[in-house]
Computed example of a mutant assay.
Amino acid sequence: MAIRISIYEDNQPLRDALALLVQTTDNFELAGAYGDCLNLDQQMTAHRPDVVLMDIDLPEISGIEATLQLHRRFPDTDVLILTVFDDSDRVFDAIKAGATGYLLKKTPPARILEAIQEVYEGGAPMSPGIARRVMKSLHRSTAPHELDQLTPREATVLALLAAGNSYKMVAAEAAISIDTVRTHIRRIYEKLHVHSVTEAIAKYLTR
């Protein structure tokens, strides 16, 4: 089944290029391309995308505000931020709002397509520099008693996920099966009282 993708980008040439990229990729289906989020609820209800590519600097309603709305109203839809902004405040605000991944617009097209696939498969892709910032903040802000709840293997799995790896990539890196990765993730969720990778990272960032 094709992955349905909606695009929110106010730069029309870039929006058109992204739309064409999606339309010409096997197993991907364009579920709308828009210049703002003013009719977000209606568009989401009508087209039900699996993944949304979201710019941050949009007119009237920012991409971060829109991501928060999506996370609350359509929790099964993943939001992949695609923006020029790499400052920590926007990165963390987007993650806290519910974004599943965060890429910079200078990311090569092939990597954007890979990231969409990774998000769909349960990963949390990030541009390398963004992932490093998240990891540094995670180490600075995580309370010791929270870390103590996780086994060494669970901590490794969470760190790999926070760095933007898909379940498959985590399994390969940690030399375990994907089923084992899923088991560790379920236990991480239980210990941190969260329901997604994004929520686990956001909980770390707000401690």
Rank of each mutant, 00 (worst) to 15 (best):
Ile3His: 03
Ile5Ser: 00
Ile7Trp: 01
Glu9Arg: 03
Gln12Ile: 15
Leu14Val: 15
Asp16Ile: 14
Leu18Asn: 07
Leu18Met: 07
Leu20Asp: 10
Leu21Ala: 11
Leu21Cys: 08
Leu21Gly: 02
Asp26Glu: 15
Asp26Asn: 11
Glu29Pro: 06
Glu29Met: 12
Leu30Asn: 04
Leu30Glu: 08
Gly32Ala: 08
Tyr34Ser: 08
Asp36Phe: 04
Asp36Ser: 07
Leu38Asn: 06
Asn39His: 09
Leu40Val: 13
Leu40Asp: 03
Met44His: 03
Arg48Cys: 10
Val52Met: 03
Leu53Cys: 06
Met54Pro: 00
Asp57Lys: 09
Asp57Tyr: 10
Leu58Pro: 05
Leu58Gln: 10
Pro59Ser: 10
Ser62Asp: 04
Gly63Pro: 02
Glu65Met: 05
Glu65Ser: 07
Leu70Asp: 00
Phe74Gln: 01
Pro75Ser: 08
Asp76Gly: 06
Thr77Leu: 00
Asp78Glu: 15
Asp78Cys: 13
Val79Arg: 00
Val79Cys: 07
Leu82Gln: 01
Thr83Tyr: 01
Thr83Glu: 03
Val84Glu: 02
Phe85Met: 10
Asp87Lys: 08
Asp89Val: 12
Phe92Val: 09
Phe92Glu: 04
Ala94Gln: 08
Ala94Pro: 01
Ile95Gln: 00
Lys96Asp: 12
Ala97Phe: 00
Ala97Lys: 01
Ala99Arg: 00
Pro109Ala: 11
Pro109Gln: 11
Ala110Lys: 12
Ile112Val: 14
Ala115Met: 07
Ile116Gly: 00
Glu118Cys: 05
Glu121Tyr: 05
Ala124Val: 06
Ala124Met: 12
Ala124Trp: 04
Ala124Gln: 05
Ile130Gly: 03
Ala131Lys: 08
Ala131Tyr: 05
Arg132Pro: 01
Arg133Cys: 06
Val134Tyr: 04
Met135Ala: 12
Leu138Phe: 15
Ala143Gly: 02
Ala143Thr: 15
Pro144Tyr: 14
Pro144Ser: 10
His145Ser: 14
Asp148Phe: 10
Gln149Asp: 08
Pro152Ala: 13
Arg153Leu: 15
Thr156Lys: 11
Leu158Gln: 13
Ala159Arg: 05
Ala159Ser: 10
Leu160Cys: 09
Ala163Gly: 11
Ser166Phe: 08
Glu173Ala: 14
Glu173Asn: 01
Ala174Met: 09
Ala174Tyr: 06
Ala175Ser: 14
Ser177Cys: 11
Ile178Met: 08
Ile178Cys: 07
Thr180Cys: 09
Val181Thr: 14
Arg182Tyr: 06
Ile188Tyr: 03
Ile188Lys: 02
Tyr189Val: 09
Glu190Asp: 14
Leu192Ser: 11
Val194Gly: 03
Val194Tyr: 02
His195Thr: 15
Val197Trp: 04
Val197Ile: 15
Thr198Glu: 02
Thr198Gly: 07
Glu199Gln: 15
Ile201Ala: 01
Ile201Ser: 03
Ala202Trp: 03
Tyr204Gly: 07
